[in-house]
């Protein structure tokens, strides 16, 4: 039994690379004021988004992102075969309730902040496997819902440590199909859960960096490629701390990424002006940066081939309070603009 669509140990190589037909992004006011503000489709001006609670606002952002991406591809929700979505809240309520409204066959995902890339990898498998014509992968996060679930009530007077990251308020959606115009997903390297014993829940960059590095190195080994083969290697939400650690760890393995390695959590905010400490995080961080900024650059032809690695810190408040350390994961996806 050989698996014809695999290369190396852990990497998938798609026979007919699925096309990213359209992307959509909805972000909160703070993200709209950030350096990438112009690249997002919708910037909401109030973190409640006209709803009573932040949870409902997050759900609405996710719904709007999915509706928008479907409309951009000139399709209707009933044309979509699968919705793959997830978020950070307990029992992934944003995705579940958004799917209730949308009525698309739904597979719920939880990969913490790596959910967007997990969804994109699975969507590519569904399409290349011949199971679907149109798949939407989407995810959302919201600063205020995440704060109150993982940390403190928002009005509590606490000091954020310099390693803390700011959860991105937003939702991103990606619509993929077997044919069409747009960049294609050629490879995916699925992450392993790696735990290096970091216990500080305000320092997720350090907790996730080794998992991202592990995925990047396995990807290079499986595909016999190196950093030079990519215009950009971009991790999801390692932030400034995790980015620096990942650069060092890759350097130790003789992979020089000092010129073409960046992180969505660094790009999304202006850290001097916006008081975001180590950078952005959350499912929406890698999702909206991909849907807005990266997709724009790929379509312009500025980037021909990028390796995106969605990073997730698989922590829970219960596990943290019981003294568990924080496991991390990173899923790698290669996106290529052919021709």
């Amino acid at each position: 039994m050989s698996a014809p669509k695999r290369v190396g140990q852990h990497t998938l190589q798609f026979a007919n690379p699925p096309v990213i037909v359209a992307t959509a992004s909805v972000v909160g006011p703070k993200e709209g004021e950030g350096p990438l503000g112009q690249t997002f489709d919708i910037v909401i001006d109030d973190s409640y988004f006209g709803e009573e609670t932040w949870e409902k606002a997050e759900r609405k952002m996710l719904e709007e992102a999915v509706k928008l991406v479907v409309a951009k591809a000139q399709l209707k929700p009933q044309d979509i075969d699968f919705l793959l979505a997830g978020d950070l809240l307990n029992q992934t309520i944003s995705a579940n309730y958004a799917a209730r409204t949308l009525g698309i066959p739904f597979l719920g995902l939880y990969g913490a902040c790596s959910t967007m890339y997990e969804g994109m990898a699975l969507a590519a498998m569904l399409i290349d496997g011949g199971f679907a014509h149109h798949v939407v992968a989407a995810c959302s996060s919201h600063y205020d819902t995440a704060e109150r679930q993982y940390r403190f009530p928002t009005e509590q007077g606490v000091q954020r440590p310099p390693t803390a990251q700011w959860t991105v308020t937003g939702a991103g959606a990606v619509l993929m199909a077997p044919v069409g115009n747009g960049p294609r997903i050629t490879h995916a390297t699925i992450g392993r859960v790696l735990d290096v014993g970091i216990k500080d829940p305000t320092d997720m960059g350090s907790a996730m960096a080794p998992a991202a590095v592990d995925t990047i190195i396995r990807h290079f080994q499986d595909t016999s490629r190196g950093p030079i083969d990519y215009d950009l290697i971009i991790t999801g939400d390692l932030g400034r701390v995790g980015h620096e650690i990942a650069t060092k760890l890759l350097g130790e393995q003789k992979y020089d990424v000092s010129h073409n390695y960046s992180d969505c959590g660094i790009l999304i905010y202006d850290h001097e002006r916006q008081d975001t400490h180590a950078g952005g995080s959350g499912c929406a961080c890698s999702a909206v940066v991909f849907a807005g900024h990266l997709m724009g650059k790929l379509n312009e032809g500025r980037y021909k081939r990028i390796l995106g690695v969605g990073t997730g810190a698989l922590l829970s408040t219960t596990a943290t309070q019981q003294g568990e350390s924080i496991p991390g994961i990173g899923h790698g996806v290669v996106i290529e603009k052919l021709g």
Binding site: Q156, G157, Q159
Partner: peptide
């Protein structure tokens, strides 16, 4: 109060006003 807390840290946690903050913040949320 949370804006003060960002700057002051323990300076706004330890006084009794911080105790009141720790009651109102979750109650409101």
């Amino acid at each position: 109060y949370d804006e003060i807390g960002k700057v002051a840290g323990a300076g706004s946690i330890i006084p009794i006003t911080g105790f009141a903050n720790s009651i109102v913040a979750p109650a409101m949320e």
